[in-house]
Computed example of a mutant assay.
Amino acid sequence: MRVALCNIENLATQPAILQVLEAHKDEIKLVITSDPYSKKNGGFIAQAYKNMRFRGYGFTEYLFAKMVFLSVIRPLLKLIGMDVLPSIEQRCNELGITYIKVEDINDASVVQLLKDQQIDLLSIYYFDQILHDEIIDVPSNGVVNFHPAYLPKCRGLFPIMFSYLYNEQNYGISAHWVENKEIDSGPVIAQSAIKVSNAKCLLEIDRKVSNHFPALYTQVLEILQNQQVNASVQAQQSSYYSYPQKAQLRELNETLPLINWCWVLRALGTKSTHYVDKQVSKPN
């Protein structure tokens, strides 16, 4: 099976994505990343101003630490000899995997590339663009999104944050079919329920949840390759959250900081080629 993988490069998911690339280098033929600060999205300055105005400094700092800091600081850390997490592009080049960064996943050139690469499965983890029918229809085996929440709870944006606030800190990753433009609503193929303890900040919880992604990814690929899919329609008792409001961020900060810079600095490096520690998750 020829697989494509979509992701936004970020500090929370980077070790897990690197491990998936290593483990499935024979199946993954194409990696597509998105630039959340592209001109199409208004650029970094405009987005930072908007977040500062409507959500405050703390949330803006959290997004910077999560989405930007690693790529900015990586060249300096390499100069001083630190063993830093490589970029997705670098690892793809080393493994011989085609890599592209796109502003619009639905562009005709991307559709054609998927066809040229004869992609059977399009897989998604932490991606900020909604797929249109032209993209969804290309892979012969369909599109699977890995959403970092235990669906049907906490669909939408920032699922780790809202799982902490409104799902009794019950975290998870759910693999579901993408059949249309509806967000995180397709039939569930497999799930992992995840418990996180002793986290110093929200970003650390995000990393710990994402560390379970490689195991579920392997499980789902095996299910699809063995044609043993038994997907279940999501229950109607779902919840959906978009960007957090200031009141929700204040509620979070009463018990958990968004980031801890000591943790962030430690999280930049890697001590092994496996990138993430082995995690124990509970499949459903």
Rank of each mutant, 00 (worst) to 15 (best):
L113A: 14
S87G: 13
D120S: 15
N10Y: 03
E61M: 04
E134V: 14
V229Y: 05
L216G: 00
K39C: 09
L21N: 01
V229Q: 14
V209I: 07
T60E: 15
N141Q: 12
L165I: 03
T33M: 09
N198Y: 07
N284I: 13
N226D: 13
A23F: 01
D83F: 09
I135W: 09
S123T: 14
L77S: 07
R155H: 10
S210P: 01
I194H: 04
V229T: 13
V72F: 15
N51P: 00
N170P: 00
E168W: 14
I173S: 04
A108N: 11
S38G: 10
Y243D: 15
V276F: 15
V209K: 02
L30H: 10
E22K: 05
C201G: 06
V144W: 00
V220A: 05
V143K: 10
E204R: 12
Y99C: 02
S38H: 06
Y57I: 13
K153N: 14
T218I: 10
V264L: 12
D26P: 01
G156E: 03
P86C: 04
V188G: 02
Q234N: 05
S242F: 06
K115E: 10
K101N: 06
V144N: 05
A190N: 09
S109V: 03
P283E: 04
I223N: 05
K29I: 11
N93T: 10
Y217C: 00
V209P: 00
L21S: 06
R250Y: 07
C262L: 14
W177K: 11
T98E: 11
Q228D: 12
L63K: 10
V68T: 08
Y126G: 13
I88P: 05
H212P: 04
K50Y: 15
R250H: 08
F59I: 00
F64E: 06
S109Y: 02
I173F: 11
